[in-house]
């Protein structure tokens, strides 16, 4: 078993395999981004694609994020299916105007005469001792834009499933890839089916408390759940792998069982996904709550330089303490 795990794919391998399979089965798919071709991407997510599918379909783009996304929108409108890479999410803001003004609006503007079936992949998040601008979690930016779908895989298998799903989707999908778990987890992906976008997944079941998380923080939530279980506190853990459109139904159903909701995410707390998840549960399951909803997030600060980045991130300890408080209060 250990041997198999050693050989099992990382998240980078899983996305890479999904891209190979998709490009092989559909010749309208093109990959575009900075250094995605010859170099195979700075994280090697696109390694081998150019060798297999050629430089016209695996486009080493000039260094300009707005250009990459605008160009991709045009390709998507004219019969191709672009999978664009933003090298780091911290550089995607140059493309925010193209995303908001056109990717998200073209179907609506033209009343369905045009659509923008494209995927935007971007590594995001802290925890890899990177430079400034390489560690943020800004999913709320994108989730606030109508017409976009935002997914965040937490494991290799989910990355594989969500990459395939994003490529099949008829609308623009942003896949935010938690680079902190790009290579830390190996998982078998054989036989994994494409995900259904817009579905939250229950990944652990228990009756005392509901913890909701996604991305790299899901693993801290699971670690906290493990630690709580040792103390006899059983938790439901739900992976909100689609940030938008948010599927709150399983969360509400869980809260109706547990009466307690703790949300864990890496983004700054104010105006972030945790607030939205809390509100949706309030709307659906307010009278089931035994105690106030709590959130453990990053802070409303810039991610510190890497010597202190762990001070920014929600720690397992913070999650456990909050959970215990909620049970004993």
């Amino acid at each position: 078993m250990a041997e198999k795990k050693d050989r099992a794919p990382t998240m980078v391998d899983a996305i890479n395999r999904a891209l190979h399979e998709a490009m092989d089965s559909d010749e309208t798919i093109v990959v575009i981004g900075e250094d995605v071709g010859t170099n195979g991407g700075v994280f090697r997510v696109t390694a081998g694609l150019k060798e297999q599918f050629g430089k016209d379909r695996v486009i080493d783009a000039p260094l300009a994020e707005s250009g990459i996304i605008g160009f991709s929108i045009g390709m998507a409108m004219n019969g191709l299916k672009p999978v664009a890479e933003m090298q780091f999410s911290g550089f995607s803001y140059y493309a925010l105007a193209q995303i908001e003004n056109h990717a998200a609006r073209m179907r609506w503007r033209t009343r369905g005469a045009h659509s923008v079936p494209m995927v935007i992949r971007m590594p995001y998040g802290a925890g890899v001792r990177a430079l400034e601008h390489h560690s943020e979690s800004r999913e709320a930016f994108f989730a606030h834009i109508p017409g976009l779908k935002i997914v965040i895989p937490a494991t290799p298998a989910r990355a594989y499933a969500l990459t395939h799903a994003a490529i099949r989707d008829p609308d623009p999908v942003i896949v935010m890839e938690p680079k902190a778990v790009y290579r830390t987890i190996r998982e078998d992906i054989d036989g994994i089916e494409p995900a259904e976008i817009g579905v939250s997944r229950t990944v652990r079941e228990g009756g005392d408390l509901t913890i909701v998380s996604y991305g790299a923080m899901l693993h801290r939530a699971l670690e906290a759940a493990e630690s709580l279980a040792a103390d006899g506190i059983d938790t439901d853990v739900i992976d909100v792998e689609t940030i938008s459109p948010l599927d709150a139904a399983p969360i509400a159903a869980s809260v109706e069982k547990t009466g307690r909701l703790l949300i864990v995410n890496e983004a700054p707390p104010s105006f972030g996904p945790a607030g939205e998840i809390a509100m949706r549960v309030m709307e659906e399951s307010f009278y089931s709550l035994h105690c106030p909803i709590r959130r453990i997030c990053g802070w409303d600060i810039h991610v510190p330089f890497f010597a202190r980045e762990q001070a920014y991130l929600p720690s397992v300890d913070r999650i456990v303490r909050a959970a215990r408080d909620m049970i004993t209060d």
Binding site: G70, M75, N78, L80, H102
Partner: peptide, 9 residues
């Protein structure tokens, strides 16, 4: 940039 992408496609 959209026009450029359309033309490339």
């Amino acid at each position: 940039p959209i026009a450029a992408g359309i033309a490339y496609a």
